[in-house]
């Protein structure tokens, strides 16, 4: 019999790590924010980052998980401490939309796109790559990481949950 699943919300600028197979880590309503999920299928540990901005400069907020670069570094650290090995990690990501779409011809700050670029740069620098991604566009997304089996999904408004 399947255990009852338990949704664990991953809020703005947060990271959640879990080894509990009943947990489903959820980053709700990602717009320009990035959701990056990582899972080690042998250690059966998963993590999800909900980052807001691309890069933390020297004067940035102390909250590492608010930024894609420092957030991913922290996500890797926490997963390693929880028993994951980097070489086994499955990485998937979602988000980075431009919510203003065509209403923003000047692409104000272009934060969604910059978040995507920052995530790829970090992964490349750390010899990782995203096996799958659903990024960019103009629609919000909810991303889920199922700790039991590493399944990662995305759902947009008016659509069913889909594997990525």
């Amino acid at each position: 019999m399947l255990a009852e699943l338990c949704s664990v919300a991953v809020g703005l600028g947060e990271i959640k790590i879990s080894r509990n197979p009943a947990d489903v880590l959820v980053a709700y309503g990602l717009g320009s924010c990035m959701g990056v999920g990582m899972y080690d299928p042998e250690a059966r540990v998963g993590g999800l980052l909900h980052a807001v901005l691309p890069v933390r400069n020297g004067t940035g907020d102390v909250l590492a998980a608010k930024y894609v670069d420092t957030g991913l570094a922290q996500l890797l650290d926490e997963l390693t401490q929880a028993g994951a090995e980097r070489r086994r990690l499955i990485v998937r990501m979602a988000g980075g939309a431009n919510m203003l779409g065509m209403s923003d011809p000047a692409r104000l700050f272009n934060i969604g796109q910059r978040n995507i670029v920052a995530a790829h740069e970090f992964l490349t620098a750390h010899r990782l790559r995203a096996q799958a991604q659903t990024v960019g566009g103009t629609a919000g997304r909810t991303m889920r990481v199922y700790v039991a089996n590493g399944r990662m999904t995305v759902r947009s408004m008016g659509h069913h949950e889909q594997d990525i």
Partner: peptide, 10 residues
Amino acid sequence: VDMVGAILDV
């Protein structure tokens, strides 16, 4: 027209 969280990301 979207999820509240995504709208507030702006």
